[in-house]
Design a protein around this nucleic acid. Structure first.
Lengths: 184, 184
DNA sequence: TAATTCTGAGACATCCACGTCTCATTCGGA
DNA sequence: TCCGAATGAGACGTGGATGTCTCAGAATTA
């Protein structure tokens, strides 16, 4: 069953985003399977983490796609991106915390290309007069992703209600990023 | 020499904030000492990481003190806090990345108490009408610290100029946190 | 200079997570 | 019911980082 692999990856995210050094025992338990089965699904720890990373980057890219970040008003695009990204916030938290991921060439390239899309969004928004130009597009991209990851951690630890996530993130970030005094 | 321990801790932060799983060899090399001397200064890896964590929390507390976060206007207090905290941004990055730290009771209590001080600052700011009340004080605290950590990572990786750190952080965050349309 | 202390380099031993294996059990289909 | 596949539990070996040790050389002090 291919679905099983995915559900295991989901469970792995839940554990690894909070504790990147978690043992395989713990991940297996979280997935509701034995360590043996975990090894049957994934050759080893490195492979598992790599696949989780690829899943995260794929979801990230899918969110960028579904939000159509390179179309229309940058402000609206960013709000769409928040909506699309929040459900995978813990995955983004994983991408931030698991630093060893970026030793891998393919992962690195994927990451760079997704970040470039975000960078382009902010750059376009600045050219449109939507986003502030005193803050570099690079910093806006970085800060945005940091906040998404923070959302993921906060939700997982029960410090933030999932329902509040989209509002909290978009209001705080856009308040600082938008050039206009305050969005409606 | 007591100073040596501190300089080793500083070097350890530089390595561990970026790669929490770095080997002791690497940390020793970064500190310019041998692994043997590292072991003479710190009983083991756990002890080293614990001391780095304590250093970070102490610096965090010192920043809260020097910024006098519980005095006067909350807006001004937060700006002072940013100034005081940015030099130790990588230490804050370490505190967010090294999750195993919080297995320790003492570390956990220290962390909670410092966060409580930040929480109080935001709560006071909300009561003063300085900060937005649509965003919970807890989320503001969390998001602020996430951004500080992000600043630390960005500076260490050379993606952000240290000179721009205070401005980038305070402008972005305050823009989203302040109730007033935009600070001067 | 001589003595003491500190340091670095390296050689071990140890420990723990990981990877592999076996085997009994369970689940699902014929 | 029977058979095959999949799973879980556990044992076992392995690798690599860690922790401890020794010893020679450097640094510091008298």
């Amino acid at each position: 069953m291919a679905t099983d692999r995915d559900s295991v990856l989901e469970a792995a995210v839940g554990v690894l985003s909070r504790r990147p050094t978690a043992h395989l025992d713990e991940i297996a338990r979280a997935a509701g399977i034995s360590r043996a089965t975990l090894h049957r699904l994934f050759p080893g720890r490195d492979a598992l983490i790599r696949e989780v990373g690829l899943l995260g980057l794929q979801r990230f890219g899918a969110a960028l796609d579904s939000a159509a970040v390179d179309e229309g008003d940058a402000h609206a695009a960013l709000r769409r991106l928040v909506e699309a990204l929040v459900p995978d916030a813990s995955l983004c938290a994983f991408l931030t915390g698991e630093s060893t991921l970026y030793d891998d060439e393919e992962i690195n390239e994927l990451w760079e290309s997704q970040i470039a899309r975000m960078h382009a969004l902010f750059l376009r928004g600045q050219q449109q007069g939507t986003f502030r130009i005193e803050l570099s597009a690079a910093w806006l991209s970085e800060a945005f992703f940091d906040l998404v990851a923070g959302i993921g951690w906060a939700i997982q630890d029960g410090r933030l209600a999932p329902r509040d996530a989209v509002f909290s993130l978009s209001e705080l970030f856009l308040g600082g990023a938008l050039r206009a005094p305050r969005p409606s």
